[in-house]
Design a protein around this nucleic acid. Structure first.
Lengths: 230, 230
DNA sequence: GCAAATTAATGATTTATTCAAG
DNA sequence: CTTGAATAAATCATTAATTTGC
């Protein structure tokens, strides 16, 4: 029921320097979004208010809000949160790792020390507040008290959003132009052989002929194939 | 200049079982896209023709094509390719790993055996051709002879798409029929990230009070903060 | 045969990495 | 060096296959 994301590459009103005619040059020359200070404030405020992974819907709202201060797309917002989360976590990890030398310092020969890595998701800020300094409007965002310390065993998984774009799901459309005439045969693609760099290893001649078939095509594909050929 | 993605959640004509009154139960029950056999054929054909990572533009076209056989969104297409690539690679890795025991079998004490991992990503299909088994129309995709073995040193980086949604100053659009012109992409960079098991341990209470500030706020945020407050 | 229980696939999401602009 | 963008890997969740007891 949801989707998400987007992205965009826009060029701010005046953020991007000269450039002038990027046109259709073979080299895209992507310029990236450069958030305005006000936008950063808003984003940080939201993030620090606890909404670290806004669902699609919120992302759109945030984007609209940010647009008051400069051109920006949903994807930019999405990326921002993604990177923010990621780097926040990383810093946390590093920091903790450095603090953890203490463990090595004292108990160095503990054979069990290497497990348990996965979870431990206390992570960072939650009720930071931050009080939105300047221009940011309501931005309250319910201050969602929500989740931390939810999953205990494997992975945390919480929000979810997505890529989204034009959602279709409308009706099914029915076959129109009639593609696929069905004519048996299909030379299998063959797989690696590629550049040969990969090993070659012992493999030798290795027939692996039809072995390829199943490794290249998904189960459903094969089923679909049969189904269509009847 | 590019973006991507989307997604969707549709409910097949009769695919979903009873369910009937799921009502407003606290449990949303997200249903996922279930590609029709024809759609799978098309997707596989494209993938096996070498276009393993279609840029946004192509994704849209593919989606439109798939829509002839059933509701589908750009995000579904994007996800499909993403998963297809990922799982293809994984199978390849596993397969190779299993074959690589030979190394352990014969030369087990070779000290240099552990490097060279980085590149060597011939990976799978490239000029596969595959001749689109059944109903697939033109779908040739130019059979892109193109790039493999392009980047030599670090990463190939080529395609790029993205999440996209409502692009702000998008314009362009169009995309009519005219099937895929071949746009190079593909070439998996490698990855491997071992990662793992780096301990972690339970951090314990760890106050880290204002230490948080700099770990929570990004550099730019702090700058922006000052800037706005003047 | 069939439906509940179990397992395998695979669509969707999140996280970790990487690349490159500035 | 910071950080926006992009992608691969890992994971979660749901649906299809398959198995099992009747």
């Amino acid at each position: 029921m949801e989707d998400h994301h987007q992205h965009q590459g826009q060029d701010p009103d005046g953020s991007s320097p000269s450039n002038g005619s990027t046109e259709r040059s073979p080299e895209p020359v992507r310029s990236r979004w450069i958030p305005k200070p006000e936008q950063i404030l808003i984003l940080e405020s939201i993030f620090n208010s606890g909404m670290v992974n806004p669902p699609k819907e919120e992302t759109v709202r945030i984007r609209k809000l940010l647009e008051k201060f400069g051109s920006v797309g949903d994807a930019n917002v999405f990326y921002w949160f993604q990177n923010r989360r990621s780097r926040s976590r990383r810093r946390q990890r590093q920091l903790q790792a450095s603090l953890e030398q203490r463990t090595n310092n004292n108990i160095n020969n503990d054979p069990m020390a290497s497990l348990s890595h996965h979870q431990l998701r206390g992570e960072i800020q939650y009720g930071i507040s931050c009080s939105v300094p300047a221009t940011a409007p309501p931005l309250a965002y319910g201050a969602s008290p929500n989740n931390f310390l939810m999953g205990s065993s494997s992975s945390s998984s919480c929000g979810h959003h997505l890529i989204t774009d034009n959602d279709v799901h409308h009706s099914t459309a029915c076959v129109d132009d009639q593609f696929f005439p069905v004519s048996g045969q299909m030379g299998f693609p063959e797989i690696e052989q590629s550049s040969g760099v990969t090993s070659a290893l012992g493999g030798g001649p290795s027939e692996t002929s039809n072995l390829h078939f199943q490794s290249v095509f998904s189960t459903r594909f094969q089923i679909a194939f049969k189904k269509i050929l009847q």
